[in-house]
Design a protein around this nucleic acid. Structure first.
Lengths: 225, 225
DNA sequence: AACCCAAATACATACCGTTGGTATGTAAAA
DNA sequence: TTTTACATACCAACGGTATGTATTTGGGTT
């Protein structure tokens, strides 16, 4: 096998393999040899033909992962039938129920053990997601009266930090009841601005779950210390 | 020089040198040889006698740095003359004006370029600072009526994330006006719980600064993209 | 208190496998 | 014929280990 007629396939293969390894083992713990071993006969030459460094692979991995997400965000952002507030709430509920996230959660130990990947995720949020998708929506909300804040840019940033980072079991390991509490707290924090990330029926449902688990979740928190 | 009669001096020297390098160059970009070169004649043997790995040096560096901070936090936490709310506000104003942080800010490029160090900082907050110092204070505030929340543990965590991470120029590079806005926003978010991180006179002062800079800070944000 | 000696300490030196990265070669495609 | 898509061979630097060696320490003896 000297040369592939469709090099894009090789490019994607490298990204596929790297994505899996970076999430399963962590970026630092994944060596180029690990990647090569799963490339089915290809060698280091192939990798360095398609990418300039190991870190460039990571960048490409994160970008490819976020592309689909960004498309969905753009779709909501550009929907002319929704207010700013409604768009924000839709974005949140979508990210909560994102099947790809759940899928990843199954294989990823915890991004706190994967510092480089975590940081690229944080950068993606701070430098792309927030300015391109969240800020416009908050601005619209401020304009159409559905969101009330004198700091739209900062609010956008804070919301993403709270909802996409803090309330994210892939980053911070936590029990279901802890996650429920975090969501309810974020919901309360944002209420004065007119934002309701979760609807009342969802809150009722979560509270029911909490009550049901109340018996055995009491001493759960001490496990972490 | 075969052996030091006071090995603790060597131990501290290694930590001193490593701290400086880890912050200036970043953990990944600092090699053991870089450390050795600044040890004044000591060799790799000395390092591996005092520490089991490069990562253990980092852990020791972070722990030593946070020890002083933790003592100060404990002092406030155990002050019997303050309400929970007052303790929280005191902790925040102390961390804002911390001279050591300012000193570090001068030499540290930005913790987003220093993933391992950033993550250890985040872990320190999540697993030590929050449970040991913030949660007790919030709980006291909930008990003495000065803080109003049904989720004391989660609120403690969220507050630390917002105040010690999000509003931290060492982690997120930002202009003075951006930082001012973030602080004002956090202040507003926490107001419904009875917490006022900054007093009205401080807000007035900041707003004055904002008005003074209003002319040249308009297009500042586009620089990041 | 002085002495002795074995064990532990505080390093130095030499060495090792792996790692990310490069330089060069080569066959197929354009 | 040039460019592309790799393979092969090679490299310095890295974190880490194994071993060697003075020096100090601590406990027993005198």
């Amino acid at each position: 096998m000297a040369r592939n007629k469709y090099p894009e396939e090789t490019h994607q293969l490298i990204l596929d393999v790297s994505t899996k390894l970076f999430f399963e083992k962590g970026y630092d713990q994944t060596s180029l040899q690990d990647i090569i071993d799963r490339l089915g006969g290809l060698t280091k030459g192939a990798i360095y033909h398609h990418f300039r460094s190991k870190e460039e692979i990571l960048i490409a991995v994160v970008e490819r992962l976020s592309e689909e997400n960004n498309r969905e965000m753009a779709e909501v952002r550009d929907d002319p039938s929704l207010t700013g507030k409604e768009k924000l709430e839709k974005m949140f509920s979508r990210s909560l129920t994102n099947p790809k996230q759940k899928e990843m959660f199954a294989v990823t130990p915890n991004l706190l053990e994967n510092p480089k990947l975590l940081v690229y995720y944080l950068k993606m949020i701070a430098y792309t997601v927030v300015p391109d998708y969240i800020v416009p929506v908050i601005r619209q909300g401020a304009a159409d009266g559905s969101i009330n804040t004198p700091y739209p840019e900062e609010l956008a940033d804070a919301i993403m930090l709270l909802t996409d980072v803090w309330v994210n079991p892939i980053i911070y390991p936590m029990t279901d009841s802890q996650m429920t509490n975090r969501i309810l707290l974020v919901n309360e924090l944002l209420k004065p601005m007119g934002i309701e990330l979760i609807k009342q029926d969802m809150i009722d449902f979560m509270n029911e779950c909490r009550r049901a688990q109340a018996g055995n979740s009491g001493s759960e928190q001490k496990k972490n210390s």
